[in-house]
Design a protein around this nucleic acid. Structure first.
Length: 558
RNA sequence: GGGCCCGUAGCCUAGUCUGGAUAAGGCACCAGCCUUCUAAGCUGGGGAUCGUGGGUUCAAAUCCCUCCGGGCCCA
């Protein structure tokens, strides 16, 4: 915000070094504060004295007054100036308010979701996807060119297991339920009935797949498509979008190039069994097997190739992996190997955006045992709950509208629940209890927006208003919140912290609701009404923009 | 054994990067507010050894070290 910078600049001119203003704990203490402890120490006088001296030297035309409160210098901005500047900025840019442009755009690839094709998506994927989408949106609005990528793990032993189960007991039946769930059931069945013999057979099936056995490939293709179709349906429901799709099966055998490169450069060592290992212990990272003795590759082998491919193909400045914290060691190994191989982008260009795990009662989810919170189930359950709530409030709503509203509300509830806390924390998840519609939730934000809309519906917007009419404490608090939105977006985007924006939106909505209850917008005094309408319109715009960044939709009525 | 993450009221969290004034919200609980722009809301109230102990500092939830508890990963 300009005022803050202007004050900081003015102080810098006097004291001769960079200073940081802070916001006082209470608005009665001013809009900005400068603690004078450091300055006092430098000048060898008491802090209060330093504050006094500084006060006399400062002159700023947009500042109403500067007060000395003990060691603090408190600044009160001329209210009408701040209100005018903030509202004008918002309406000038509307949907772009808060977005930042960089002269030289950086290209960033964000990889998220990354499912296996042997089962449907679970809550963990939804958490991951929500963070991926919000982060991508934030990066775009902080002036980056963003590529959203999804890596489909469509080959490997887990796939062979569901294939084998289906082959043995499926009798070629077609899916009677959503097709990804259908395949998932065979995977669970395999694990229920598994024996050493079956494990071995699955292993053999994988080898057959690798040697391009026609029957195996046909079955694989069929079952893979079932899962991918089902997963794509879930993406559409949930709102996850991607620009690029990578399929492991399409490049898994190209990975050897980098293994050879590593051996040639002496980064990898071959042991007496022929296993190829990347030695990383001197970097305080565990050694990593890069290729097995029998020449088969590992997940990492392919990831090495893919990482290089991503940087080459898109000329990336940065690649971000949105992946749970349990992969921390793995990704550190991947990044370090790329760095040792000599790729200049590896050191600063590879980022693991780690998030915590979704835990359920009894600990970790186990997809092998079918002990998971299923993604589709969760979406559906929440939609039904939202429908109940909406119906309570609007008994006469038509079925179609009810469905649409409930869907937006439930998705907002889920996504916001995931985004409001710092990504790195584990989430204890319970479908019935975790996601709510009241308090600090997505629906609360949507509701505030709808309230603003319903006011604006009844009153015309005029661009010329008297800013001095918005004098109330509550109005000014709301304006101040609105004014820092661009700073919040920048902070959240640059630091990959969607929760910063999520928490800000809660505070913004609280300020608005507070104002809403205190002051009546629609009223006799039309001049006053016009001024208040503009404030409400500004709030509505910022709330809509902010929620869009979190991939949450708004609605005019709820 | 080593690495990473987390610890703030009965419960869920923000604040920690970048130290600063009475530690900020929500859920639950208690008391109020719908003939006035949507009560999915608002106001007030009670409830905190900021995991522990030490250090740095005029000043520590925040920085440094120790230990404890929880989670994950590697071996």
């Amino acid at each position: 915000m300009q005022f803050r910078e202007a004050i900081e600049k003015a102080i810098k001119k006097i004291v001769g070094e960079d200073v940081r203003l802070e916001v006082p704990p209470s608005s009665t203490l001013g809009d900005f504060a400068y603690p004078c402890f450091t300055l006092a120490k430098k000048q060898k006088i008491a802090p209060a004295q330093a504050a006094n001296d500084l006060q006399n030297k400062l002159e700023l035309d947009f500042v109403e007054r500067v007060e000395v409160k003990g060691p603090y210098l408190n600044f009160f901005i001329k209210k009408d100036k701040l209100i005018e500047q903030t509202l004008k900025e918002i309406f000038k840019q509307k949907k772009k308010y808060g977005t930042h442009t960089q002269k030289k755009k950086k290209t960033v690839l964000v990889e998220y979701s990354s499912p296996n094709t042997n089962k449907p998506l679970h809550v963990g994927h939804l958490l991951n996807g929500t963070i991926g989408m919000a982060t991508s949106n934030l990066l775009t609005s902080t002036g980056h060119k963003v590529i959203r990528a999804n890596l489909i793990n469509d080959r490997g032993i887990h796939i062979s297991k569901s294939m084998l189960a289906y082959q043995k007991w499926g009798k070629e039946q077609k899916p009677k339920i959503k097709s990804d769930h259908f395949v998932g059931e065979w995977y669970v069945m395999f694990n229920k009935r598994k024996t050493e013999k079956l494990e071995k057979e699955a292993q053999e099936l994988l080898l057959k797949w690798e040697s391009n056995d026609k029957v195996t490939r046909t079955l694989w293709e069929k079952m893979n498509n079932w899962v991918i179709d089902g997963i794509k349906e879930t993406y559409t429901e949930f709102g996850s979008k991607f620009d690029v799709w990578y399929f492991e099966s399409e490049f898994y055998d190209k990975a050897n190039v980098l293994v050879k490169e590593g051996l040639d450069k002496g980064i990898f060592k071959k042991d007496k069994e022929g296993t190829i290992i990347a030695e990383l212990e001197e970097h305080k990272i565990p050694d990593k097997v890069v290729m097995r003795g029998d020449g088969t590759s590992l997940y990492l082998t392919q990831d090495l190739w893919l990482t290089k491919n991503k940087f080459d193909r898109f000329k990336l400045d940065k690649a971000i992996w949105v992946v749970g914290s349990e992969q921390n060691t793995y990704l550190r190994q991947l990044f370090k190997i790329m760095e040792l191989l000599g790729y200049s982008w590896a050191k600063d260009g590879c980022v693991h955006l780690q998030h915590g795990m979704v835990l359920i009662e009894g600990g970790k989810m186990k997809s092998r045992e079918g002990k998971v919170v299923d993604g589709d189930d969760l979406i559906e359950k929440m939609r039904l709950l939202a429908e109940q709530e909406t119906k309570k409030r609007n008994p006469k709503l038509k079925a179609k509208e009810l469905y649409l509203r409930a869907k937006k509300i439930s998705l907002a509830a889920i996504k916001f629940y995931f985004l409001r806390t710092e990504a790195s924390k584990n989430i204890m998840f319970d479908v019935e209890r975790s996601v709510a519609f009241e308090g600090e939730t997505g629906p609360y934000l949507q509701y505030s927006y709808a309230r603003a809309h319903s006011i604006l519906k009844k009153a015309a917007f005029r661009s010329k208003i008297d800013y001095l009419l918005l004098v109330e404490e509550e109005a000014f608090t709301l304006v101040k919140k609105l004014s820092i939105y661009p700073d919040i977006v920048l902070d959240a985007g640059m630091n990959l912290k969607p929760h910063v924006l999520a928490n800000y939106l809660i505070e913004l909505a609280q300020s608005f609701n507070n104002y809403y209850h205190k002051e009546k917008v629609i009223q006799e005094d039309k001049e006053l009404q016009r001024a208040r309408v503009q404030l409400v319109a500004a709030f509505k715009q910022v709330m809509e923009n902010g929620l869009a960044l979190l991939d949450i939709e708004v609605m005019d009525e709820m």
